[in-house]
Design a protein around this nucleic acid. Structure first.
Length: 312
DNA sequence: AAATACCACAACCGCAGTCAC
DNA sequence: AGTGACTGCGGTTGTGGTATT
């Protein structure tokens, strides 16, 4: 019954790969391919490694056209956009970034990008559930999330990421967002102190989970015990005051939207993300672009309201 | 100069879905 | 149809290099 055993775990080497092992694996695959059988490959290639380990090494490091090094601003934008929308589906995100592996992106997110975003998440202490979401969303997770989670974009002088939102609701669904998720008319691209903002009503904080759940993988709250909301963890635990950030309202919206999506479908990462297909993802990351004056254009090439978001 | 802390990246682990027997 | 290996994925841990004390 079943197949032959995977590998002799007692006789496989673990830990970092040596240059010799890399060379063996590369040579073997270049000459013979994987034949769709990673388990048998180590023996054929004279490697004392588990097939799983060989596969990982090839896919994440040895495979041709792998791109190492700094991520571009555009790559940041795509990662942020997709993460906010589909969660930690690294393989899907990697599919949109040629040359990048899911492991690469995951590491980049966990070690760098997440921290950048963490530095602008305000902490709130009063946390109540947001108003109930319209029933009409229940059946349409994709349209909901696409409408509600605006793609991130880079401002004209590349200093901060921005999040865009149509002045006029793009759809009936959007129009029925809670009223306090609205923009004002004083937004000014590139000026974090003079931006449109989303104001939560008194006593409300948008997330249902902790505010940093979105950015920290659900590791829990770090709210201030003294009831203040003035501090947040930055690099190496440094406390960054909101007033030092120059703005403070974006994440309220982001988290609200994120949580609304999550609530609407029960479990964001397990339900919504699965409803995406490749076209959805492409549409999502391609749904905004920069106009000649640096404004963000939507799919219909109409200028969108902007507000500063991530200020690095 | 040594010890410690921090960081980035590579690699491993465990799970779930798929597939071969 | 049932069993168990295989594959792919995401989360976590390990490791080596660098910075700081």
């Amino acid at each position: 019954m079943g197949r032959a055993p995977c590998c002799d775990k007692a006789n496989v080497k673990k830990g970092p790969w040596s240059p010799e092992e890399d060379a063996k694996l590369r040579d073997y695959i270049e000459k013979n391919g994987t034949a769709g059988n990673w388990i048998a490959l180590p023996q054929k290639a004279d490697l004392k490694r588990c097939g799983k380990s060989c596969r990982l090494r090839w896919l994440n490091y040895l495979r041709p056209n792998i791109k190492h090094g700094e991520f571009s601003i555009e790559e940041d934008r795509i990662i942020c956009t997709l993460y906010v929308t589909i969660g930690s589906r690294w393989s899907i995100i990697a599919a949109q970034l040629p040359g990048r592996t899911d492991n690469d992106i995951k590491n980049y997110w966990n070690t760098k990008l997440k921290k950048k975003l963490m530095s602008v998440i305000p902490q709130f202490n009063q946390r109540r559930a947001p108003p109930p979401f319209p029933d009409s969303y229940q059946d349409s997770p994709l349209s909901l999330s696409s409408q509600m989670l605006p793609p991130l974009s880079l401002d004209s002088n590349s200093q901060y990421y921005t999040c865009s939102l149509n002045k006029q609701p793009a759809s009936q669904e959007f129009a029925s967002l809670p009223q306090y998720l609205s923009t004002n008319d004083n937004n000014s691209l590139g000026n974090p102190n003079n931006c449109s903002s989303f104001q939560a009503p008194e006593g409300y904080y948008s997330p249902l989970k902790e505010s940093n759940n979105f950015l920290s993988g659900g590791e829990g709250s770090c709210s201030c015990s003294d009831g203040s909301s003035g501090g947040q963890l930055g690099r190496a635990g440094e406390i960054i005051k909101q007033e030092d950030m120059g703005f403070q309202d974006y994440s309220t919206y982001t988290d609200y939207a994120y949580q609304c999506v999550e609530k609407t479908n029960g479990y964001f990462s397990e339900n919504i993300a699965e409803s995406y297909n490749l076209d959805d993802v492409k549409r999502l990351i391609g749904s905004t672009s920069l106009s000649c004056n640096g404004s963000i254009l939507d799919e219909n090439r109409e200028e969108l309201d902007l507000m500063p978001m991530y200020y690095f």
